[in-house]
Write a protein that binds this DNA or RNA. Structure first.
Length: 886
RNA sequence: GCCCGAGUGGCGGAAUUGGUAGACGCGCUGGAUUCAAAAUCCAGUUCUGGCAACAGAGUGAGGGUUCGAUUCCCUCCUCGGGUACCA
């Protein structure tokens, strides 16, 4: 019986589609399971083999869950706004919508060719006005929400209390006050600008090396532009706390915690000589205040002009200008050498009463804390470097004790820096009633904060690294903001009933050099007039690509609703997402943004859960083998030949080294899923993607590996399609045991997302069938039910060959019968001093003393016991026997 | 620098409340089938020594706990990911 997958794979895909076998509706009588894939950006190059990895995993889980009686929601859609389609439009004049539609069609065809059990009636597209209408609707909700820090909760802007002092200032002041509290606001912001893409980008889109994540060029710089921002830091604590109850990889939680960057410390006010203003600093080490020997303000600090004395003005101005011209990249690249300049001004250390100089230096960032620090060079490495560079005093106030070893003397002398715990020295001022000498770090911090608060010089403070989210782009192909700027300065949102604000037709997609969006070139769209004849301009920025993916999981619940984003009853049934699988590259941004929006919607009573994604799993990257010469230069795969496990250049004959690298066109090692489906079938592709290794591991693709699973399916087909192999009788004990072990193992492994070992168990079962030659029809059908989630096409095909009606996908999952797994004897491995020497079968119910006797008397034991003394014998029933001899 | 994760045959990988290291697959070797090849089926395959029985070594390196360690603890090395003047 030949395994001609191509004769039936298409047939079954069509059957599933036409009969809507995987469509689901909210149904309270059944338990629900919402299983979500991170939806793709439909690029022009089509699916790569990384996509089906996660999709197959969720598909197996969904098919399994259905068989277990769950009502499964398993949707797919397109995150289709984005730069490539727009770049293509600039080059060719093709409207991005046209390109997008074409790419979506390719993606849909490719995904459907893998037999994935999506409910295609729920397909969504972020670029569809019927979808982004609601993205705009949510933006309006963000705009009309403020965060009540007291309640730690977002509330409607109509509930915002306006202080009397603000009211006294008039309407303008009230409007400004309200604007300052909205979660979405419009402001002049220093932002990253990419000269290549002609748009701003978020901080997080600019990589460490100063290149833009999206285009890879280093043409990014700082600019001041009017921008939309979202106040995500208000939700920092909620976003941090919310992680606790989630079933997410620990690494992703760590990365989010890291990104939020909570730190606790204190704000301290320093008196400045000759100025009425105090200089406020933030420090996590208020305990080291006795050691503060100078202060630093960032070049952008608001007080710099007051601080600088006339004789130092030129030098400081020059420094500030130079710092402003430097990109952040330059600042960090030159991080090894600290720069700075003295303002000429002194502050007073509140504990020592000493005059300490105030410097300006760019190692202090304006965006964190108060933009000013107290410098404790003896106990902070950055301050230490700075102090050494500029010859500032280093006063040690913490004795490291023996922990520092030989370093200790240098530290105490101020010639080295110590940031760990120790015992304080020189840290007392009897006049002020403060003495922390001898205390440990923890105690010291508490004591100093208490003292500062009592004396009104400072207070305990919490700080977060997370910044406001830059939420606008100067591009065409994105969601328009539902915002109008009126000629009198008022900013208003478009009324809900006037949504969506659609994109205008244009043929000029090229953004301006100074930050104008292409939308500003379309006057008939841009200019509006209200009923009173007041003129206004629409917001010409568009939303970033993150916007559409922030809430798509909610739209899947009710994708065709044009009255509301989704029905509340349906949301209540399906949420939260029970399993969310996607790449680790979204560990921070997408998942954090999405959680933020969700929490706002939760606070406003629009969704019923505080968190959107209950369980998250990251599939690993699929890599490919690549080849390089001894000097490290890469060789494309078509120039490589293998001989006896070694690799050689086909032209030069040079021996090459096999390495593992990302698939890339330049290395010519990209694997196209279409080719694999064509050659080996969809079931083989699915099975191989799962068999390669653990789902979360990065692993290299090999064609021989695909052949391996293809061979397995071929064996399955030729055995189970051969009528002579299938009997009407019953099976022997051994076969039933392997069958039920297989049900057990596959069940456990699917629950644990360990598909590779599930497949290996199915291989063991198949090998067993070959050894037996014949199995009962009942056993064969049971096996097909187990195989079906992994290789659905072949399972359907064999299922009907047994005279069953379609479909195996609608059969209940088989139950394990423990009776077939029970054993009455166990073949014990017998060890002597921990080394296994022989095996010995004994009844499982044999008492331990009898086992010991039997082992000591065993023929094979003689050799190991002779001339030695038995110290003891360890028997773990059903596991192992170990005899300790001497 | 800091925070995660991972190092197991020729290769992908399996096994962890501490209990037979190398399941399953690839590759390789031998056999059957064939005029022959492909395909398929069967057997073998951690390394070293030995015809074999068997013995010794063995999960990145070194140390420790234990009757017993791939699994737990300490020190170190290598690789991958994240992050970096965040006071």
């Amino acid at each position: 019986m030949d395994y001609n997958f191509s004769t039936f794979e298409k047939k079954w895909q069509q059957y599933w589609l036409e009969n809507k076998l995987f469509a689901s509706e909210a149904d309270r009588s059944k338990p629900k399971f919402y299983c979500l894939d991170m939806f793709p950006y439909p690029s022009g190059s089509g699916l790569h083999v990384g996509h089906p990895e996660g999709y197959t995993a969720t598909d197996i889980v969904c098919r399994y869950k259905r068989a277990r009686g769950f009502n499964v929601l398993h949707p797919m859609g397109w995150d289709a706004f984005g730069l490539p389609a727009e770049q293509y439009a600039i080059q060719t004049g093709t409207h991005p919508a046209v390109t997008t539609k074409k790419n979506c069609n390719t993606f849909r065809r490719q995904i459907q060719s893998l037999g994935l059990s999506y409910d295609w009636d729920r397909e969504i597209n972020t670029t569809d006005p019927a979808y982004f209408k609601w993205t705009q609707w949510i933006f309006i909700r963000l705009y009309n929400t403020w965060f009540d820090t007291e309640l730690q909760k977002g509330r409607p802007i109509s509930e915002l209390p306006i202080p009397e002092t603000v009211k006294d200032g008039g309407v303008q002041d009230v409007q400004e006050y309200i604007a300052s509290k909205r979660l979405a606001y419009y402001d002049n912001a220093q932002v990253w600008w990419c000269n290549h893409c002609k748009t701003v980008c978020a901080n997080e889109e600019v990589l460490n090396d100063g290149s833009h994540e999206k285009c890879g060029t280093k043409e990014v710089e700082r600019r001041f532009l009017k921008q939309w921002m979202l106040r995500i830091p208000h939700y920092a604590e909620r976003l941090l706390q919310g992680l606790e109850g989630l079933d997410w990889p620990a690494g992703v939680k760590d990365m989010q915690r890291n990104w939020i960057g909570k730190s606790t410390g204190a704000e301290v006010d320093f008196v400045v000589e000759g100025l009425p203003e105090k200089l406020k600093v933030y420090t996590t080490r208020p305990d080291t205040l006795f050691g503060a020997t100078y202060m630093v303000v960032s070049p952008e600090h608001g007080l710099v002009n007051e601080l600088v004395t006339p004789e130092n003005k030129d030098a400081v101005d020059e420094y500030i200008q130079a710092a402003a011209l430097k990109s952040d990249l330059d600042r960090t690249e030159l991080a090894k050498e600290k720069t700075g300049v003295f303002t000429g001004r002194y502050a007073i250390n509140p504990l020592t009463g000493k005059k300490i100089p105030i410097w300006v230096a760019d190692y202090v960032l304006m965006g964190y804390g108060t933009g000013a620090i107290m410098a404790v060079p003896a106990h902070d490495t950055r301050d230490f470097e700075f102090a050494k560079t500029f010859g500032l005093p280093v006063d040690c106030i913490l004795d490291p004790g023996n922990a520092a070893g030989e370093l200790r003397e240098k530290i105490i002398a101020g010639d080295a820096c110590w940031t760990e715990d120790g015992a304080y020295i020189n840290s007392a001022n009897p006049e002020l009633g403060l003495d922390i000498n001898g205390m440990s770090k923890q105690k010291g911090i508490e004591t100093v904060i208490n003292w500062l608060e009592k004396n009104n010089l400072g207070k305990a403070t919490v700080n977060y690294k997370i910044r406001d989210w830059l939420f606008s782009r100067q591009r065409y192909w994105g969601e328009p903001f539902p915002i109008i700027h009126w000629e009198d300065g008022e900013v208003s949102v478009v009324a809900d009933e006037d949504l969506p604000v659609e994109l205008p037709e244009t043929n000029k997609y090229q953004p301006g050099d100074s930050g104008e969006s292409p939308l500003s070139n379309v006057p008939e769209w841009l200019e509006v007039v209200d009923e009173n004849g007041r003129k206004g301009l629409r917001e010409t920025n568009t939303m970033p690509q993150w916007a559409g993916s922030c809430w798509y999981y909610l739209r899947f619940i009710d994708p065709k609703n044009d009255e509301e984003p989704f029905s509340k009853a349906k949301e209540n049934y399906w949420m939260p997402v029970d399993l969310y699988i996607g790449g680790a590259e979204h560990a921070v941004l997408h998942l954090l943004y999405s959680r933020f929006w969700h929490k706002v919607l939760f606070d406003l009573g629009i969704v019923s859960t505080d968190e959107p994604y209950q369980k998250l799993f990251n599939q690993g990257m699929i890599l490919a083998f690549a080849y390089e010469t001894a000097s490290g230069s890469k060789v494309t795969s078509d120039m490589v030949e293998e001989k006896d496990g070694k690799y050689f250049h086909t032209q030069t004959g040079e021996e090459l080294k096999q390495i593992v690298a990302k698939m890339s066109k330049s290395l010519k090692n990209v694997v196209n899923p279409d080719d694999v489906v064509e050659k080996y079938g969809a079931d083989s592709l699915r099975l191989y993607e799962m068999f390669m290794g653990p789902l979360d591991a990065t692993k290299p693709w090999t064609d021989t590996g695909v052949k391996g699973v293809y061979n397995f399916l071929k064996r399955v087909y030729s055995f189970f399609a051969e009528k002579e192999n299938i009997t009407d009788g019953t099976d022997d004990k051994e076969t039933l045991k392997v069958l039920h072990q297989t049900i057990q193992k596959v069940t456990d492994d699917v629950e644990g997302l360990k598909f590779n070992t599930a497949i290996s168990q199915m291989m063991i079962f198949t090998n067993h069938c070959y050894k037996k030659g014949k199995v009962s029809r009942e056993t064969a059908e049971t096996f097909l039910k187990v195989l079906a989630p992994f290789a659905p096409h072949i399972s359907e095909e064999l299922w009907v060959q047994y005279g069953n009606g379609p479909s195996v996908s609608q059969q209940a999952w088989p139950e394990v019968n423990e009776k077939f797994l029970e054993e009455d004897a166990f073949e014990y491995p017998v060890s002597f001093n921990g080394k296994m020497r022989y095996k010995f079968s004994l009844p499982l119910d044999m008492p331990v003393p009898d086992i010991e006797k039997a082992v000591h008397a065993h023929e094979m034991s003689k050799k190991w016991i002779e001339g030695k003394q038995i110290i003891k014998t360890i028997v773990v029933p059903g596991k192992i026997i170990n005899v300790v001899v001497k």
